[in-house]
Design a protein around this nucleic acid. Sequence first.
DNA 1: AGCATAGGTAGGAGATTTCCTACCGGTCAA
DNA 2: TTGACCGGTAGGAAATCTCCTACCTATGCT
Lengths: 106, 106
Amino acid sequence: MSEPDVFAALANPTRRELLRLLREEGQQPVQRLADRFDMRRPSLSEHLRVLKDAGLVTEQPVGRQRFYALRPEPLRELADWLTPYERFWRSRLAGLREVLDDVPDE
Amino acid sequence: MSEPDVFAALANPTRRELLRLLREEGQQPVQRLADRFDMRRPSLSEHLRVLKDAGLVTEQPVGRQRFYALRPEPLRELADWLTPYERFWRSRLAGLREVLDDVPDE
DNA sequence: AGCATAGGTAGGAGATTTCCTACCGGTCAA
DNA sequence: TTGACCGGTAGGAAATCTCCTACCTATGCT
């Protein structure tokens, strides 16, 4: 993961919800995003800054508004990070291989 | 994500390294994992507990050892979580589509 | 039995996160 | 230009995270 701490950025549910809104509704100014949360605007600003630092959103000033938009590249990198784990769930056999000398217990 | 806080579990680099070791080398007892880290064993135990709570590893006692093994299901769920974002990086056109319907304001 | 080993729990220090209120600068409209 | 609005920064409180040392239990070995 080249971007600074994408995992940490995704660890917070508010930030994941922000990404979902930007994905489903497209780019939006801060206030319109803030309306969706039971949280003061400065806190939202902070979350947006974390997302921006992680490269997950871009910011574009338009007049006195700032539109935030999804930037998906770090998520593609996350998908790449997941790739080597795929065989563990894609192939039942591969999964079993790992757990082979298991007595089913708790 | 059904498992409790898989995202939070993945936010820590030590825990991601633990998952990588279990993926590449298969299940191992705690001490053998701890040898790979510049960290005291109780701290490692704590990380393993977080991974276990997130459903990312299983624990199997064998004598006085406990073997930890990768449990990939939550990672598959993470891949599922990523799916709706795929079109944003898979299709350049789809990405543009989002930027196009610039809603100027609320 | 006696001792060593594997690995967990207890509890605490310091860093970080996540929220808040107060405030500030920039932009638009009258 | 004055005032309202957008959204950021400052700074702090409380919670959580990440590490530590000290200690405990359980298992295996001799």
